[in-house]
Write a protein that binds this DNA or RNA. Structure first.
Lengths: 143, 143
DNA sequence: GTTTATGCAAAGCATTTGCATAACA
DNA sequence: TGTTATGCAAATGCTTTGCATAAAC
């Protein structure tokens, strides 16, 4: 990865997770803490469905609805970013910084690229009357 | 759209569709011709599921499997491009040229951008040992 | 007559929904 | 008590699969 990050440590224990949630205006319930832990334990991109599976496997049993509700809440509160890969699943990213992606077509792995690593030039003409909300770049690579 | 295209006319009749298919090494069955017609009739991005619905609505009845098989075949034979938008559906593009996308976040509409309209600079370092297969840029715009 | 394409119905998978229960302030 | 969170089970939507039939060469 490109040496980015938000300054937070990659791994959280339960107490740290609770603080993080509170800091974002989220009531730290047992389930939300568990989800945060799974999410930030392995700093990587994770599908909602996979998170549900992992959460169930752990000691804290959590329902599907709660997982989906919670992830949505986390995005709303700025704790996560939702990605746009066509996996027919919701993919979340603990990396909050604006960044691009390197997609390994063979393995399906996704890596982050620092925003500064890719230069994109968008002429005003292409936007017309619309305003630019964001630029997503995905480099597809093989091997 | 950005004045691109592959030189083909936007609208096909049945005979033209059959020729197009043959030119790509595809046996022009009744169903495949019908699918091509729907696909190229409205030159735009279309989801597999929507194509299925439109095809059924038309005079030629086509099964789900045939639609999905055919779209896969068309991609394989270079008649279509499959896109990576996270709509939880397969989206196909009749525009074969390498190009980028303008995504209207409000309406969900997708527009094509000519490859020349966006300049992207990818330093060699970010690729490591992998080789670049493609660059996908999506501009998210509002309003 | 063998290969290739199509159709049908069911299964699979991720997500969403409605409503009842539980936790919390 | 009233609000907020969770759980369960069923429904939804799109895609995939297996196998039988039909069409093409």
């Amino acid at each position: 990865m490109g040496g980015m990050g938000t300054g937070a440590d990659p791994i959280l224990n339960a107490d740290e997770a609770a603080s993080l949630l509170r800091a974002h205006g989220i009531t730290p319930t047992r389930q939300r803490v568990a989800i945060s832990t799974v999410l930030f334990a392995c700093r990587q991109h994770m599908a909602a469905s996979e998170l549900f599976r992992r959460a169930q496997a752990g000691d804290t049993s959590i329902s599907r609805s709660t997982v989906y509700n919670t992830l949505e809440l986390f995005v709303e509160k700025g704790l996560l970013q939702e990605l746009n890969f066509s996996d027919r699943s919701r993919i979340y990213d603990t990396n909050l910084a604006s960044h691009h992606h390197l997609y390994h077509v063979d393995s399906g792995k996704i890596e982050d690229l620092d925003i500064s690593q890719i230069k994109v030039k968008v002429p005003d003409e292409v936007l017309g009357n619309s305003s630019l909300v964001g630029v997503d770049v995905t480099l597809r690579v093989a091997g």
